Each structure stands twice: as C-alpha cells, then as structure tokens.
Amino acid sequence: MPDSRRLGRWALNGAAGLAFLYILIPLIFVTWLSVYAQEIPSYPPEGYSLRWYGAGIANDRFLSAFWTSTQVGVIATLIGLAVALPAALALNRYKFFLNGAISNLLLMPLIVPGIVLGFALYVFQVETEIATGLPIIGSFWGIVFGHVLLVIPWTVRLILASLAGFDRTLEEAAQNLGADRLTTFRRVTVPSILPGIVAGCLFGFVSSFGNLEVSLFLVAPGQTTLPIAILQYLEWRIDPSVAAVSVMQIAVIAVALLVTDRFVKISRVV
C-alpha cells in the first residue's frame, strides 16, 4: 500500500494537472475553432482548414492594428526602460525613508484594475489638454504614455531580480583599476544585469501588446490596437478568422515569454 506521503504527492500532482487543464481549455477551444472549415462555427465541424489564418493575415484592419500594437509596444518599452533602469538601481542601492513608498508606487499599475487605470488616464489626458492646449486625446503618443505605465512595473521588477544577485565588488575592482563610474556602469554593471534588462523589455512589450482595457480609453476613431480590432470585428461578424488571429497573437506572446524565461526565470518575479 502506498504511504500517505506518496498519496499526498499524487493528489497534489492531480490537482495541479486539473488546474492547468482548466486554464488551457479556452486556448484549446480557440485553436480548434481556428481550423474549422465552415464560416459559421457549428458542432460537429464540417471539416478542417487553415484558410482562416490566411484570411486573418490578409485582413487590412488586423494588419494595421498589428503594426500599431507593435509600434506602441516597442516605443513604450524603450521609454519604460529609460525610467525603470535608474529607478531599479536607486531602489537597490540606496535605502531611504521613501524607498518602500516609491517601490509600491512603481508597482501600482499591477494592482489597479485595467478599466480603472484606463479611465484615470483618459481623465488625466482630458484635463491636461484643456490646461495646456496640447492635442493629446486620441493621439499616438497619448496611447504610448498610457502603455508606458504598463511597462514600468514589470521592467523594474525584473531588473531588481537581477540586481539582487549582482556582486558589487566587481564595480569596486573596476574602479580600483582606474575605470570611472560611467565606464564601470557601461562595461561591468550593464553586462552583469543584461538578462534582467532583456527580460524586462520582453515582458513589458508583452504586457503592452496584449492590453485591451487601457487602450480602449485612449485610442482615436480609426486607430486601433490588435486586441481592439478583434473586439470590434466580433461586434459584426463571428467566423474562425478571429480565432486564427487570436491564436497568432497568443503565439507571439508565448514566444516572447519563452525567450524571457531563458534570461530570467518568470517564477522568480511573478
């Protein structure tokens, strides 16, 4: 008879397997729907085809939204990195009475619901445009500004994870050998924490690329990101091309996450 410890391990593995299956069920059904042959989804399927992937790629609305999401994600990631890197270095190396408050403030976008964050950003941009006269509402840079707030928390968190294992005696050795602070930072510090920087950029891009809630409040008419384009398409038509586009979007995000995990284990920061 198996002992209680083995039974407990089997029960834990079984519960974990059921949880993973429950999480993956939507992805399984979306992938299955994307290869239906008929235009109107019905069960059982009349056959299977990959033509909906070609239809999704050939759709100008989806292509335009894809490039908009990519551009917003890349620019927001670069700006977020410019803010997150010095912030992470300061939080790691200097201990002051506002250290905890600043750390919590940088991670706040992860806590605030996306709808609340998007509405707050919209109100802020409206008030800013009224006060300054700058054309912010519905502009490309207005969307980028909102997505920067999505990028910063993950980038800070991943860079801090790399800094936690960084040996600062390497910097002291470089300075003792005649290197100034800038050279030390460029040739010693950055290469040592480069995995965290790359992982932070990738994870930040993923959070921006797949965001729907914030983008809904900030886009202008005729300017959409990929998640919004999928939502708008579903308002008028339901066919497997939407499922195909969704699968391709999931594939892009999955590849980015796998690359991220090669640099910094995601389990260390989430």
Score class of each variant (00 low, 15 high):
residue 17 G to E: 13
residue 66 F to D: 07
residue 107 L to Q: 12
residue 140 F to H: 10
residue 95 K to D: 14
residue 138 G to C: 06
residue 106 L to E: 04
residue 33 L to H: 02
residue 71 Q to G: 12
residue 141 W to E: 08
residue 10 W to K: 15
residue 89 L to G: 04
residue 67 W to G: 09
residue 178 G to W: 07
residue 192 S to M: 12
residue 168 R to M: 10
residue 232 Q to H: 07
residue 123 V to I: 14
residue 56 G to L: 04
residue 60 D to E: 15
residue 25 I to F: 15
residue 16 A to P: 07
residue 90 A to W: 08
residue 257 L to N: 11
residue 80 G to S: 02
residue 31 T to N: 02
residue 131 A to P: 07
residue 256 A to G: 02
residue 76 A to H: 00
residue 264 V to I: 15
residue 37 A to L: 09
residue 24 L to P: 05
residue 38 Q to I: 13
residue 189 T to P: 03
residue 52 W to L: 01
residue 238 I to M: 13
residue 178 G to L: 08
residue 51 R to V: 08
residue 43 Y to H: 10
residue 198 V to Q: 06
residue 127 E to N: 12
residue 108 M to T: 14
residue 4 S to G: 10
residue 107 L to A: 15
residue 191 P to E: 11
residue 172 E to A: 02
residue 60 D to N: 10
residue 137 I to K: 14
residue 53 Y to S: 02
residue 186 R to P: 03
residue 25 I to N: 08
residue 137 I to D: 05
residue 193 I to C: 08
residue 190 V to T: 14
residue 225 T to P: 01
residue 231 L to C: 01
residue 118 G to I: 12
residue 143 I to W: 05
residue 243 A to R: 04
residue 82 A to T: 09
residue 41 P to K: 07
residue 217 F to Q: 08
residue 154 W to A: 10
residue 5 R to S: 13
residue 2 P to I: 11
residue 269 V to P: 06
residue 56 G to V: 05
residue 234 L to N: 09
residue 23 I to W: 07
residue 238 I to N: 12
residue 41 P to C: 09
residue 22 Y to K: 11
residue 123 V to M: 03
residue 10 W to P: 02
residue 3 D to F: 07
residue 189 T to A: 05
residue 60 D to M: 09
residue 103 S to Q: 13
residue 147 H to K: 13
residue 268 R to K: 15
residue 260 T to F: 01
residue 35 V to I: 15
residue 113 P to L: 05
residue 80 G to Y: 00
residue 190 V to C: 07
residue 266 I to P: 13
residue 118 G to E: 12
